[in-house]
């Protein structure tokens, strides 16, 4: 079974984010990056499926040169090889198009993506990719079961509800965080990763990218509503003030 996992590199959790001078994007110079969280679960699921059914796991990512680090980490965890499409600043449609172009000749049996990126959060690259490849898809997946020629998944719905869906393979699934337990890279894995192949596809000379149907014009901090009474400073004083407020102002204790 050939499984492809699309992984996105996003700013390290809890990074202090600052806007660039033009207010059009964040200032990336001082940032560190890591794998998008649901993508880590997608990778883990792919590795577990390979352990069960045999085959190969390919990780693929679109982004600037720094992305190769995240691909390397996925290889260290056990992915077999990587594809890095060097490109930046295009919309979902453009990214899905690049992924589709690179994956078509691979014809994977299963493609996994995260359900949503932690930074921009459009939550649709996987679904658009499925459309471009003409494959069925299902989203927010909490369980994957491979059956002959098809896949049965558990899809998360709102308020703690779920649903089982079956569809023929090949298919695209967008993976929700928490469906499995993530592994760490072993020393052996890290060593091995150095010898694994990362194919770099440069956008130069590739097909024209269609202009985006929407542009991000401006990024800005949301307006503060200031309704909260905030206590700062010494924790004990703050705690005492809070308890007093809860007792005598909100009268909830």
């Amino acid at each position: 079974m050939k499984i492809a996992v699309a992984i996105k590199q996003v700013p390290l959790r809890d990074s202090p984010l600052r806007l660039n001078a033009a207010g059009t994007w964040i200032d990336e110079d001082t940032l560190s990056f890591e794998i998008n969280e649901p993508d880590a679960y997608a990778l883990e699921e792919a590795l577990q499926l390979r352990e069960k059914h045999g085959g190969e796991v390919i990780v693929i990512s679109v982004g600037p040169a720094r992305v190769s680090q995240t691909i390397r980490e996925a290889l260290a965890k056990g992915a077999d090889r990587g594809i890095h499409i060097e490109s930046s600043s295009i919309d979902t449609f453009g990214i899905a198009n690049l992924l589709a172009t690179a994956l078509r000749p691979e014809s994977p049996d299963l493609i996994l993506t995260g359900l949503q990126s932690d930074d921009l959060g459009y939550g649709q690259t996987g679904v658009v990719l499925a459309q471009l490849l003409g494959l069925p898809s299902s989203t927010i997946i909490m369980q994957v079961e491979i059956q002959p020629g098809k896949v049965r998944v558990k899809r998360e719905l709102e308020d703690g509800w779920f649903q089982h869906i079956e569809m023929p393979l090949p298919a695209v699934l967008t993976i929700q965080s928490g469906l499995n337990k993530l592994r760490y890279a072993t020393l052996m894995g890290i060593k091995k990763a150095k010898t694994k192949e990362i194919k770099v596809i440069s956008l130069d000379g590739a097909a024209e990218v269609a202009p985006p149907s929407a542009v991000i014009e401006k990024l800005y901090a949301p307006e503060k509503n200031k309704q909260a009474q905030i206590f700062e400073g010494d924790p004990r004083t703050a705690a005492a003030k809070l308890v007093e407020k809860l007792r005598f102002e909100a009268r909830v204790l």
Binding site: D91, T92, F93, Q124, V127
Partner: peptide, 23 residues
């Protein structure tokens, strides 16, 4: 922006060459 919309609207928009502006 429901789970159902997330599941199919991006595919629909793609059929028209568009991106869903979600959420």
């Amino acid at each position: 922006h429901t789970y159902q919309t997330r599941d199919y609207a991006p595919r629909l928009a793609a059929r028209f060459g568009r991106t869903l502006i979600g959420d």
